[in-house]
Simulated assay, not measured.
Amino acid sequence: MSKKPKQIKFKLEGFNNLTKTLSFNIYDICYAKTEQQAYIEYIDDAYRAERLTEILSNVAEIIGANILNIARQDYEPQGASVTMLISEESLAFERLSNAQAPGPLPDAIVAHLDKSHLTVHTYPESHPDNGISTFRADIDVSTCGRISPLKALNYLIHSFDSDIVIMDYRVRGFTRDKTGRKHYIDHKINSIQNYLAKDTKARYQMIDVNVYQEKIFHTKMMLKAFDLDNYLFELQVSDLSSLKRDKIEKRLRREMMEIFYAQNIPNF
């Protein structure tokens, strides 16, 4: 039987002033050569402010936070934003854990926390020439105190159609214990990957870039499996010639690699 990882425990002098921030981008890639506007309207409607608010509300519950305030907005011609202010639940401490283990998966906006917040912004976009459309969601979960955003990772990744996920986690500031000693982190972490479920890790190619002494952790993920039918909007592979299929697949793979490696790649 594997042992549970030990958590760092110390008696604080006053409030836990550590700020823990999880920021990540989720990308959904699609080919819609002649129906790009229809795709943009479809994905924009699928992730309207109302649905984003529901997702963030569930995140607040997962990390043990009270929602104090919500602001949300759908934009024209597309895009949406939600912001929440949150606070720690007064009775949640016994069930809160920052241990390096995956958080819950989903069952099937902007909100405010007390000194903490959740935000999400969406960016549907397309290229008129090559038929590629990309939907991006930027999500930030920033907490102050004991609660950590890492337990919400699995839920968030599964709440979107995620071809590529790029995540950053950073702990800022310090908190003092009773002896006056400063603590710059209050939980053990080697990698963001330790907070992902096994099936999630199995589905993605992943790369870590961590700066441990600065409490900075970076992980990016790209879906391993590639089924062209999953990337076509109002089009089927059977409708395409083999030459056309190859061209579309190359465009899609190139788009994914450019986002994953954050650089433009020559035609191949």
Rank of each mutant, 00 (worst) to 15 (best):
Y123L: 08
T143Y: 11
E125M: 06
S242N: 14
Q100Y: 02
G145Y: 04
Q78A: 13
P106L: 08
I132V: 15
K215I: 00
G14I: 01
Y42M: 07
I157E: 02
Y39K: 08
I166L: 07
E258Q: 15
I70P: 00
K198C: 02
I265R: 12
L118N: 07
K6A: 06
M256Q: 14
F268E: 12
N130M: 10
R170Q: 14
Q73C: 02
T19L: 11
A32W: 09
Q205N: 09
F24N: 05
I259R: 13
K3M: 10
I139Y: 03
Y204C: 01
L252Q: 05
R48G: 14
S87N: 15
N190H: 11
Y155Q: 02
L240V: 11
L150M: 14
I166F: 02
S191L: 02
N17K: 12
F93C: 04
I207E: 13
V82Y: 00
I26G: 08
I185R: 06
S23A: 11
A65W: 12
F135C: 08
I70H: 06
R254G: 14
N230T: 04
H183F: 13
D239T: 10
G180E: 03
I8C: 00
K20S: 08
S241N: 09
G79C: 07
Y47C: 13
E54H: 05
K198G: 03
D186F: 03
A108T: 07
H218G: 04
T122V: 05
D129S: 15
D199G: 05
A60I: 12
L96K: 14
D107L: 07
F24T: 03
V110D: 07
Q193R: 05
I43M: 04
V211P: 00
F217E: 05
V110L: 04
S238C: 01
P149T: 11
G173N: 10
D129F: 13
T175W: 07
L252Y: 06
N267D: 14
R170H: 12
F268S: 06
F174N: 04
M1P: 01
I259S: 04
Y184C: 00
D74A: 09
D107E: 06
D246K: 15
G79L: 03
F93H: 11
R170S: 13
R95S: 14
D186K: 04
K224Q: 06
D229L: 05
R51K: 15
T53C: 02
L113W: 03
R51E: 01
P149I: 08
Q78T: 06
H121D: 14
R51D: 01
L56P: 02
D129E: 15
Q193D: 03
D44N: 15
L105G: 00
I147E: 06
F135D: 11
K201D: 00
K9P: 00
L235Q: 15
D246Q: 13
S81Q: 04
H218P: 01
E76R: 07
T119M: 05
D45A: 15
V120D: 01
P128S: 14
H121P: 00
A38C: 01
S242Y: 07
A111K: 13
H183K: 06
H218S: 08
